[in-house]
Amino acid sequence: MSVLSIEGLAGGYASADHIVKGVSMSVDASEMVAIIGPNGAGKSTALKLAAGLLRCTAGRVWVGGADITAASPQSVLAAGFVLVPQERNVFGALNIAENLAMGAFTTPALMRQRREAVYARLPLLAQRRSALAHTLSGGQRQLLAMGIALMAEPKVLALDEPTAGLSPMAAAELFATIRGLAKDGVAVLMVEQNVIEALGACDRGYVLVDGRVVREGSAGGIMDDEDIRRLFLGGRKAQRTAAGY
């Protein structure tokens, strides 16, 4: 049975706008799943609806059998669902150690033990533990955001464009780190703009267009699909060239 099940999820920023129009997805333990699609397709909105940050108008979300639909942030955390937002995903004025501590805010008794575990997994954070988060580079900041999420010992890690703004090398390193987490049993669901890299790193993918899933399947299958290539990947490649990569 899937660790994360999303069924018929719908909603948007206000109760009136329906950006996401009935999305169903599932992620298994140790599985990495990418959500791809054009701008405005509702990828990030779907993650926020699932995390309870936005109120959904329809649908259900389960984590490990627990219904977390429209639950409080505390319940969502307790169920093991952790979202890493795309922006402002660290506490800039706090140092790394404090940022990690905030990740286990609801479980203070376990904080120190978990922080040591995060330091062991992400040694860079251990080296710079007293550095203020706003002094970190983009890649380090994403790593810290990941570390904060790990402090909750998530069953499901939802990542909103984790490699946005990172250099290709930093992005590759981050994907490798995420892969390591998945190997240890975490179910990973990520929204990505870097389609090729994301599909290269993930097991499966969902293609979202205008708030609906139009295609799902293995990462390789999606990458080989001619329609998808023409629709996104070609476009992306052209954009990348234009952007001077």
């Binding site: 955390l77 402002r88 506490f91 905030m102």
Partner: peptide, 14 residues
Amino acid sequence: RATADNPDLARLKG
């Protein structure tokens, strides 16, 4: 301090 710095993330962290 976390709330003052980043209220949305603080709320997300419970």
